[in-house]
Design a protein around this nucleic acid. Structure first.
Lengths: 166, 166
DNA sequence: TTGATTGCAAAGCATTTGCATGCTA
DNA sequence: TAGCATGCAAATGCTTTGCAATCAA
């Protein structure tokens, strides 16, 4: 049994909840995927292995995983909640390309330090934070330059990040 | 006519749109309020001066104000979109108290600088960013300490920031 | 006059909830 | 056996859209 599964089990027992096949499968599939999945994404993946599992259970389990400290919720502005691994993963922040939806993860110790300083200054006790930088990634800048060259005009662009899942 | 109104008018004309009484009233009320209003909040305020104005128009106008650079969308995790003034206002970030919903605005030049550095490192062209620090403000820490003293136990707490409007 | 705007009602979406049935502990 | 978990359908809550009637340019 993986460390994560033990953490989950412990959380479940401590909360007086029950161990079920569904929860275990959902966790397993989640762990197997190193991405920013939405509940829907995960639902689809889980469906392949057990078509009887319902959306609702996935929603509920993701919430559980978050409480257990195994998952972290992230929002990229496309309306859906995404989840990423959180167990023994260093905290990081995101850059979101508003043209292609690409997500770049980054970490900066100074950034973290300054945030703590700012919090202290206001006697605020931070429990978590979320920094998102929206913009355009290299690849999209490159291709939009080319388009400009070709067509001599700016392209109509997507309004907001849509996750790059099809 | 205020500077903001001129900016708005210019935006409207440039886009081939039309100047209407509703839009003007909504902008006026928005400018008059120095807060983080949701569309609903603004709708209610506008209603007082013209009960015929519809929700939809407020939604649409807030979008317009955002495009014109007069408003900025912010999300505090309560599901609704809030709007704050953006014209000639220095960019700032937010700390959100997850117990009382209070919003603390702050600014740090270093924070901005480091973000730009990080973006440059990934050749990412930032257009905007959003940093939110969730946690507990002084007042809530204080009162929860008192509760603990009085009742000898932790309080059940709110799960996520609810905006402090009643 | 023409096309943008408005307000209402209806539709959309992601997420949550009610509830009868099924299953862990 | 008791009560949590599940899955379906229905409900929610915010936001958007369709559309006929209005209105600005």
């Amino acid at each position: 049994m993986s460390e994560e599964q033990e953490v989950f089990l412990k959380h479940i027992q401590k909360a007086g909840l029950k161990r079920t096949a569904q929860r275990e499968l959902i966790l397993e599939v989640f762990l197997r995927t190193e991405e920013h999945l939405s509940s829907e994404d995960l639902y689809r993946l889980v469906q392949r292995e057990d078509p009887n599992i319902g959306q609702t259970t996935v929603y509920r389990t993701l919430k559980l995983l978050t409480e257990a400290g195994l998952a972290r919720e992230v929002r990229f502005g496309d309306g859906r909640t995404h989840y990423e691994h959180n167990y023994k993963h260093q905290h990081h922040d995101h850059m979101i390309c508003t043209e292609c939806g690409k997500i770049i993860e980054f970490f900066s110790a100074e950034l973290e330090a300054i945030q703590d300083q700012m919090a202290a200054k206001f006697k605020f006790e931070p429990t978590q934070h979320s920094l998102r930088i929206f913009g355009v990634c290299v690849e999209c800048r490159r291709s939009s330059r080319e388009h400009k060259k070709l067509e001599g005009a700016a392209q109509p662009r997507v309004r907001l990040a849509t996750t790059a899942d099809k």
